[in-house]
Simulated assay, not measured.
Amino acid sequence: MASHISTDLIRGHTSTIILNILRQGDSYGYDIYKQIIALSDNQYELKEATLYTAFRRLQKDGLIESYWGDETQGGRRKYYRITQSGLDAYEQHRNDWIFAKGVLDQLIMGGDDNES
């Protein structure tokens, strides 16, 4: 049976994933959507509705800002940029994740005295 990642497992980390992408440079919704698929090696696809809900929440919390691009071809795109508060939040979430991952590794795989 092929493995797949549970949406529930990722749901609480959507904001951190978006902040991680934006700390590498400003971007727009569809490009962020594609970057998430690429970063997961095509193993995870975030629903666009979930993405735009997260954008609104992050903006309301002051972690990202948006602005309109000046595309000469096609429709104008709304771009998102991470704020200093967003960078600080990303670092905190990243540290929390590293800590939680270590604890989960111990809880799920620990206790076996035969481990090498």
Rank of each mutant, 00 (worst) to 15 (best):
M1W: 07
M1N: 12
S3L: 05
S3N: 09
S6D: 13
T7N: 12
D8Y: 06
L9H: 15
R11Q: 09
G12H: 04
G12S: 06
H13I: 05
T16K: 02
I18M: 04
I18V: 11
N20A: 04
L22Q: 04
R23H: 08
Q24D: 03
Q24F: 04
G25S: 09
D26F: 03
S27R: 11
S27P: 00
Y28W: 12
G29S: 10
G29M: 03
I32N: 01
I36R: 09
I36M: 00
I37H: 06
A38Q: 07
L39G: 09
S40T: 15
D41M: 08
Y44M: 07
Y44V: 03
E45T: 13
K47N: 12
E48M: 08
T50D: 14
T50I: 14
L51W: 01
Y52P: 01
Y52G: 01
R56Q: 11
R57N: 14
R57H: 13
L58P: 00
L58G: 03
L58S: 03
K60D: 10
L63W: 07
L63A: 08
I64Y: 04
I64M: 03
E65I: 07
S66E: 05
Y67H: 14
W68C: 14
G69I: 06
G69E: 09
D70V: 05
E71Y: 10
E71T: 12
E71C: 11
T72L: 13
T72S: 14
G75L: 12
G75I: 11
R76Q: 14
K78H: 11
K78G: 06
Y79F: 09
Y79L: 01
Y80P: 00
I82G: 00
T83R: 00
G86E: 00
L87E: 02
L87S: 05
D88H: 09
D88W: 04
D88C: 04
D88A: 07
D88F: 07
D88R: 09
D88S: 05
Y90S: 00
E91I: 14
E91G: 12
Q92E: 14
R94N: 04
N95W: 10
D96F: 03
W97H: 08
I98F: 14
F99Y: 15
A100W: 04
A100Q: 11
A100E: 10
D105T: 11
L107Y: 15
I108W: 08
G111W: 00
D112S: 10
D112A: 09
S116R: 15
